[in-house]
Nucleic acid binder design. Structure first.
Length: 234
DNA sequence: GTTCCGATTCCCT
DNA sequence: GGGAATCGGAACC
């Protein structure tokens, strides 16, 4: 993809100030850019996941507002970057009206600019399609960490922003967007309800393979290990 | 103060 | 396909 300097304007806040599922869908195919002293890395978003506020049991906001989740409860158009598993950063984009506490997790992308820098940040990636295949990988490739938590995506000088690229939506035809449920979390309307939490671009090699979060082994001692084995692949 | 567990990834089999 | 690595937030006592 050619990065046209004329089109590097960031999406306006109004883009994020909409229902979370609309924002999630419209983010697909768009390019997120992070500028650092080392340079720019840009990635085309290929997979996202929606988190629909405090009523969403799978959301960090479900337990109410805490110092950690404060950004989610704030105004739209800001980044919510959190640390997970003691080693990974994951990036969300806050959306909906202030107080909604909904956000879109960037699950996967295709690095389209700054490939060398992205490779240096992701030495474990064997192929370029693996550079940003997965939420923590995407954050790593972009060079995102806690320093970007709360960052304003819409400020004129913001280092982190999503480009307002008119070709983004045209690069995906009708039906190119696929949606699927999260596993382990029932929909707001009750068990079994299919809610399009996750959406991705069909046929993209950078879409992360879906895996059910495997219950990790308890700390030594707990003999009764009821392993709930469930497998699911897309 | 202490314990539990996670919106994951990597490496080995 | 399975297990280990690793640390901070939030719940619990």
């Amino acid at each position: 993809m050619i990065m046209d300097a004329v089109r590097t304007e960031a999406l306006p806040r109004a883009f994020y100030d909409r229902p979370v599922l609309d924002v999630a869908r419209d983010l697909l195919g768009r390019v997120v850019v992070h500028t650092t002293d080392d340079g720019d890395v840009a990635a085309r978003v290929t997979e996202v996941e929606a988190y629909a506020g405090p009523d969403d049991p799978g959301s960090h906001a479900a337990r109410g507002r805490t110092p950690r989740t404060a950004v989610m409860f704030g105004p739209p158009g800001h980044a919510y970057v959190y640390f997970s598993y003691g080693m990974h950063w994951c990036a969300n984009l806050v959306c909906g009206p202030e107080g909604t506490a909904s956000a879109v997790l960037l699950r996967a992308g295709e690095v389209v600019s700054g490939l060398d820098l992205a490779r240096s940040r992701r030495p474990a990636a064997r192929r370029d399609v693996d550079l940003a295949r997965g939420p923590a990988r995407l954050a790593a490739a972009l060079g995102l960490d806690g320093a970007q938590d709360g960052a304003d995506l819409c400020a004129p000088t913001s280092a982190l922003r999503v480009l307002d690229d008119a070709t983004a939506s045209s690069s995906r035809g009708p039906g190119a967007v696929v949606t699927g449920p999260r596993v382990g979390v029932s929909g707001p309307g009750g068990d079994g309800e299919l809610f399009p939490w996750r959406s991705w671009l069909a046929g993209e090699p950078t879409v992360s393979a879906y895996r059910v979060a495997a219950p990790r082994r308890r700390r030594a001692g707990s003999g009764a290990s009821t392993t709930t084995d469930e497998e699911s692949t897309q």
